[in-house]
């Protein structure tokens, strides 16, 4: 019990402190940022001499605040998740699922592409020289400039030339943006990981007269696993960003990005913030999921417990 209490103190107390600090700053900021509108409301209603506590409570309960208070966001998230059937467009779970499916597909595509590129680069000096600059250059283009192109052109090709129905085509277009963002950390991390075996470990393989594929599967690949998971964590978060960006500029009707955009059209700040909160929770869940897989793999590979 003593140890349990202690681990709670050391693990959660710092996190809790930061959360409390953020919430306090948030409430304070909400007063300041909503004050102008609140004063306007009082003036129009000919209300004077409002006590300060009343004024504060009013700034925290506006319909369309500049900055909604944390409890307003929390209530909106609750109403849009627990209180609505998850298959209704009112539900944030519905939108989260749409974004998640594009994220997941893009993450798988991007990771496979990243690993594939890393394998080529490590095994072929010409590939190393020719591919690496392009891989780096690909990430210097703002994704916001590229996303509409990919979504519109991709969508037209998928539905027109290839003849895929609209929903899968939309999903695939978004997934391509996710993949575009997530392949980069995986490629860079895996190049480093596949090159991580020491000289004597490679010499050992040479003395056994091992084939290149044996060197890869028995040495380079297992040696790269720690690098792979570090990259995957960055990659999965980047995938989510890609999927949301893919929903922003294209008139998409579903997904957290569409929800953000709709909120901004109608000045529904609480809706924007609740979509943001759900997006960040989704990101945390995705990174945590990669972390769980990493733990399981590490245990199977006999890693020393930290």
């Amino acid at each position: 019990m003593q140890r349990l209490g202690q681990s709670f103190m050391t693990r959660f107390l710092p996190i809790l402190t930061v959360v409390v600090a953020i919430v306090l700053v948030w409430y304070a900021a909400a007063i300041g940022m909503n004050a102008a509108w609140q004063n306007d409301v009082y003036r129009r209603g000919d209300v004077a001499n409002v006590p300060f506590t009343q004024f504060v409570l009013d700034t925290w309960s506006q319909d369309k605040p500049v900055l909604p208070a944390p409890h307003q966001v929390a209530i909106e998230v609750w109403n849009a998740t627990a209180m609505v059937a998850p298959n209704k467009p009112r539900s944030l779970l519905f939108h989260a699922w749409v974004t998640f499916s594009a994220t997941g597909l893009g993450f798988v595509m991007g990771s496979l592409l990243g690993i594939g590129l890393a394998v080529l680069i490590v095994h072929n000096e010409a590939m190393n020289r020719s591919l690496m600059p392009w891989i780096v250059a690909s990430q210097t283009i703002p994704i916001l400039a590229l996303a509409p192109l990919i979504v519109v052109i991709g969508f037209n090709i998928f539905t027109g030339t290839i003849g895929i129905p609209t929903d899968p085509a939309r999903l695939l277009s978004k997934a391509i943006i996710s993949a575009y963002l997530s392949f980069f950390p995986v490629a860079v991390g895996m190049v480093k990981g596949l090159r991580s075996p020491e000289a004597i470990q490679l010499d050992l393989m040479h003395t056994y007269n091992a084939t290149p594929s044996q060197v890869f599967w028995k040495l380079r690949w297992p040696a790269s696993v720690p690098y792979l998971f570090a990259s995957l964590k960055v990659g999965v978060a980047a995938s989510l960003v890609g999927a949301i960006v893919g929903e922003l500029p294209t008139g998409a009707v579903a997904g957290l990005g569409a929800r953000l955009l709709a909120g901004s059209y109608y000045s529904q700040t609480t809706q924007i913030w609740s979509a943001l909160v759900v997006a960040s929770m989704l990101a945390a869940l995705l990174v945590a999921a990669v972390g769980v897989v990493e733990k399981l793999v590490n245990r199977a590979m006999g890693a020393r417990p930290a």
């Binding site: 020491e198 004597i200 470990q201 010499d203 050992l204 003395t207 297992p222 040696a223 696993v225 006999g302």
Partner: peptide
Amino acid sequence: RSYGYVFQAPALYPW
């Protein structure tokens, strides 16, 4: 494969 080689370090694969 006519020889076995033992290096200065064990060079065991940690996994």
